[in-house]
Nucleic acid binder design. Structure first.
Lengths: 205, 205
DNA sequence: TCCATAAGTGCAACCGTTACAGTTTCGGCT
DNA sequence: AGCCGAAACTGTAACGGTTGCACTTATGGA
């Protein structure tokens, strides 16, 4: 019994097909580049019809991010199952450091991250992926805090936190970048007073 | 002399062509819906070839946001030409209230905003538009404050501020939403302590 | 055992987008 | 005034992502 109970042959085959498609896609993309591979090539390699391919993935770009749903689930879990007494922001910070940063800097995934970074269509898609999760995350945060589902502070927090992966990407020290931005979110930009120039000056300062 | 000097016939004709295309597009989109109109229809209506159409606009979606560049220019100007002594954040807040909020709630533009809101491809494109401006805005802010071009606090501020249009859209009081989010950016989420639940609780709180 | 239904197939078409090779139109320069 | 290179524009054809459709096959539950 390879899986959890009540998983019939049908579902296993479906998962296998999906995985075969994702694997074929990644392999071809890494070898030839995203633009150089057509969905028909991928379907061929995975031995399915293009119709089936699009039954499993909504677009060519989505083939690369097949763990999309898991990532959202982990994000939600990080907030929902945080240690009692821990604030939502701290839970998100911990999750960001543990999951995003280490994944992004894992040398085994370097070829993957390079592929995404070097392909505009994929970077674009990744960015939109995070924003799609923002709505979900926003309602989860609101729920956790007992606020209205569409509470503005919660929606804003969700959107801003999910900008962080994009913001940290490509920095020499992504970990430090994540920490810095979380500190900014917590304390606000008024704390940005230094000798050079204040971000939040008052009128006639 | 209809324009500024040194504007020859060539440039005027080019601008006219561009405008004709944008006008044709908007007219058809409003009448029949974005998906129901093909770029060939639009080109036909504007009496140009589809090749010409794509020489002026990079995509079908972009036909709707032909003021894109002006909007970015205004954004940059709002920061660069702010009253002396005014903080960057305050300048952005003022610009948001003056330009974005009033445009978004202008009844004359209702059909336009409704079109965008009801067409996923267009909402998506609008959101990406703002993010494209984030890079520019980030460097301008950094420049104004005499920081490194890629200063993290500046990049983050730019991205977050440009989330605000999306965040405020669809709220019953967009103006209040803008104000609230700017206050959050300035003071941070630690200020979110109320009787129900603190966003930034500490461990073992 | 039988059947409703989900998964997969193959084909054809739609449509956004681009390459290409050519023509017309300007604007600067002599 | 007249020439020339560049810019704007054209028409056609193709490419490739995506979808609709009618159909077959396999599966799990009744």
């Amino acid at each position: 019994m390879p899986d959890s109970p009540t998983v019939g042959r049908r579902e296993r085959k479906k998962a296998a097909t999906r995985q075969a498609i994702a694997d074929a896609a990644l392999e071809l993309f890494l070898k030839q580049g995203f633009e150089q591979v057509s969905v028909r090539d991928i379907a061929e390699r995975a031995d399915v019809s293009t119709t089936t391919l699009f039954a499993h993935f909504p677009s060519k770009e989505a083939l690369v991010f097949d763990r999309d749903e898991d990532i959202e689930a982990e994000l939600v879990a990080a907030v929902r199952e945080r240690p009692s007494g821990q604030g939502v922001v701290e839970a998100l910070r911990a999750h960001a450091l543990k999951s995003w940063v280490s994944i992004a800097s894992d040398p085994r995934l370097h070829r993957f991250t390079a592929l995404v970074d070097q392909t505009p269509a994929l970077s674009k898609h990744a960015e939109r992926m995070w924003m799609r999760h923002a709505a979900t995350l926003g309602t989860v945060i609101a729920e956790e805090l007992g606020r209205e589902t569409d509470d503005l502070a919660c929606s804003a927090l969700a959107r801003f936190v999910l900008q962080i992966p994009t913001l940290a990407k490509g920095r020499h020290d992504p970990r430090a970048a994540v920490e810095t931005v979380f500190d900014l979110l917590i304390h606000g930009w008024q704390s940005q007073h230094d000798s050079r120039g204040a971000i939040t000056g008052s009128y006639k300062g």
